[in-house]
Every structure is written in structure tokens, then in C-alpha cells.
Amino acid sequence: MSDSQPIQRTVRLKIVQGLHIRACSGVVAIMDGFEGRVQIHYGNKSADASSMFDLMLLAALPNSELSLEAEGEGSELILDQIEDFLSHPSVPQD
């Protein structure tokens, strides 16, 4: 039930290059298949986590603080994944 309420989390962006194209691409890939909505706030800007354009335009710098907000089925899980992804220095190469 708690999934229907938006949940929030704060994450420090550890990816060395910040939210550059590869990092944005990684976030969008995580979002793939998720039915709900995730917003990422940085400073006074916000981005839809499934939009490459939105994420790039955040231009979030390394070591900055991002606040994540998710709603919909499986919100906790998706935020876990995004948090994990953003907290590692390099974008994993699979």
C-alpha cells in the first residue's frame, strides 16, 4: 500500500563525470519497464528519470546532492537501483 504514496530519498552523486550522457543512459535503462514515475531534483531543476533530455539538462555535477522521488508499484526497488547506480564512481560496463 505504501507504494501508492510518493517516497523520497536523498543521494550523493558519486559518478566521476557527473550526470553525463552515459550516466543518464544508465538511469533511463534502469527505468525501463517501471510503470511508475521517478523525479530527480537537483538544485531548482527537476527531471523525469525516464527522459534522456531531462536528465542531461540537469547537468548535475559530481558529488552533488540529488533528491529522488518515486511513485507507483515497486517504487522502493527502483529507488534502490537508482541510488546504487548513482553512488558508484564509475558507470558499470556490462
Binding site: I21, C24, V28, A29, D48, S50, S51, M52
Partner: peptide
């Protein structure tokens, strides 16, 4: 190839 994956995501961007 990762760059192309990113381009793919641009094309499929719901906001776009």
C-alpha cells in the same frame, strides 16, 4: 556501442 544505446534513448524519450 554504448553511445548508440544513449542515442536510442534520446529517440525513445517520452518527453520528446
Amino acid at each position: 556501442a554504448a553511445i548508440f544505446a544513449a542515442h536510442q534513448q534520446f529517440v525513445r524519450d517520452p518527453k520528446l
